[in-house]
Amino acid sequence: MSGFAKSSIARKVVMALSGLFLVLFLALHVTINMSSVISPETFNAWSHFMGYNPVVQFLMQPILIAGVVVHFVMGIVLEFQNRKARPVRYNQYRGSANAPWVSRNMILSGLVVLAFLGLHMYDFWLHEINYKFVEANPEDPTRYFEETVEKFAPLWRTVLYVISFVLLALHLWHGFASSFQSMGLNNKYSPAIRSFTRLYAIVVPLLFIFIALFHHLNPITH
């Protein structure tokens, strides 16, 4: 078993499974966020449910955090191993001749998304922990919409948001379909998986970007 855990293929599969899990999570996240554009009430209701339901809070949230941590820690470990596998670099290396840019720069797009995640955790997760457990405020099921829209008021944050989601799109463009190959799936369905990957990699980040711009351009005026 220890041989299995250390093997390059097992690590690929860990990257694939955690990645696919995060892909699924994105779909849920974007659905909830879209409601903030359509109906603030629905957005508040969903946010409150996600924030106070014990199953979400104490079972699903830790699983999600574990998924994120496993994905980026393993990704960084593999990157270091891969660099060690070619200690002397080529003077001339035409990577673009045989592989797309996105597939060669997953570490770059991944690290940008990770940095964004840091800001995101600071903005929302830390804020929630503070609100609920440090300040011990009472439950307020109506606060989420306003809190969220306020975040998009500064231009710098909206710009960072947009850049991060462009990088996320690039990350998904390669990663989503690639995870099936890692798990040993390469057959007549692969072209369909690749097409779906491209659709997903464009539509989901674009929706996130749309939401950010929408709130930036429609601030709450008191």
């Binding site: 390059s8 593999l78 890692s182």
Partner: peptide, 12 residues
């Protein structure tokens, strides 16, 4: 050897 990240350069 390093770990495969499915870039597909090998096949090309």
């Amino acid at each position: 050897f390093g770990n495969c990240t499915n870039t597909g350069a090998c096949e090309v």
